[in-house]
């Protein structure tokens, strides 16, 4: 039985800050290749965004929320460190209270963790319908260079065995023990990063390339057989470094490279990148996505596009809907000055 993506939806908050604003304030901007990034409004958070994309994903099928039999939520920046998060989204969207749900929150790999959890449900239950939402707006101290890259966005997917837009061909993962790169100690709501750049890059490259190559080996696939590849985007350069090691070229990475205009979307990075690819993909295209979470681990998933039903609005339309803010307003919105 084929399982896959039956629908999807995206949301990008309207506010943007340009790299020039950081250069004016700090003298430099640390996020390679990022021209501008998205910022959540004062009254938005990952739960309001997850509710919005969940509704859009269901509308794109279309499917009534009471059909959902599995819900999963992914974010590294939830508004609470203890309190069930899915309930807010589930109740807002109208997903039945008896639906099993899970919250995935401890690394930027959370988005694909939730998607794989959803697929496991539909593979075990042929009539099952999983709704998976990834929404993120990571926060760090304004004094840390890791803060420069952090953006905001959300995407949701309806996974099932019917009305497929893209069929899942397989998935593979790799997990290691690494530390010092992008972590949150229990008592701090802000990201830490010890700036052990080479070490962190090694963890990212080894996990992502291992997950991706073991999947490609399993599927007997060569790099050139993929039309589109989406790789975790802490900035807009990392995908090229990883992609280069795996034998992928810039054109294969182009459609899913949303970080250029949105920044680091954390757990929503790969989900939003995949949505941007599905927006323009043609039937028959193969798509590889590879997530990464510090700590560390990577998931790779391979899809074959089998339908040309597109979600509304497209990622590009969400990118184009924007209002620029200055750095001082950014600091106020982030609660850095009160």
């Amino acid at each position: 039985m084929a399982v896959g993506i039956s629908g999807y939806g995206v949301f990008i908050p309207r506010l943007r800050i340009k790299r020039e604003e950081y250069v004016k304030a700090w003298g430099s901007f640390a996020a390679a290749g990022v021209a501008e990034k998205s910022v959540m409004g004062f009254d938005e958070d990952v739960l309001t965004s997850a509710a919005k994309v969940s509704k859009r994903a269901l509308e794109s099928v279309p499917l009534s929320p009471d059909k959902v039999s599995r819900f999963a939520l992914a974010s590294t920046s939830p508004p609470y460190t203890e309190k069930l998060l899915s309930g807010t989204v589930l109740v807002t969207v109208g997903v039945p209270n008896a639906t099993y749900s899970s919250d995935h929150t401890t690394s930027t790999r959370a988005g694909t963790e939730a998607i794989i959890a959803g697929f496991e449900h539909v593979m075990a239950n042929p009539k099952g319908i999983a709704l998976v939402a990834a929404a993120d707006a990571p926060r760090a101290s304004m004094w840390g260079s890791v803060e420069h890259q952090l953006g905001a966005g959300a995407a949701a997917y309806v996974l099932s065995s019917e009305n497929l837009v893209a069929e899942l061909e397989g998935h593979a993962s790799n997990v290691t023990e690494h530390f010092g790169e992008r972590f949150k100690p229990r008592d701090d709501p802000l990201l830490h990063d010890l700036n052990v750049k080479k070490f962190a890059e090694g963890a990212l490259i080894s996990n992502t390339t291992k997950a991706a190559s073991s999947l490609m080996k399993k599927l007997n696939r060569k790099p050139e057989e993929y039309q589109h590849v989406v790789i975790q985007q802490p900035d807009a350069k990392v995908p090229s470094s990883v992609g280069g090691k795996l034998g992928f070229t810039e054109p294969q990475l182009a459609a899913g490279l949303v970080s250029k205009n949105l920044g680091d979307l954390g757990a929503a990075s790969v989900p939003v990148g995949l949505a941007a690819v599905l927006d323009i993909a043609k039937v028959g295209d193969k798509v590889l996505v590879v997530s990464y979470g510090s700590g560390a681990g990577a998931d790779a998933l391979s899809f074959k596009v089998v339908g040309d039903r597109k979600a509304v609005p497209r990622v590009q339309a969400e990118m184009d809907r924007k209002e620029y803010i200055e750095y001082v307003k950014y600091l106020k919105l982030k609660g850095a000055i009160v």
Partner: peptide, 8 residues
């Protein structure tokens, strides 16, 4: 206009 969920 239409409604959506926000932090109040």
């Amino acid at each position: 206009v239409k409604t959506e969920l926000r932090k109040i």
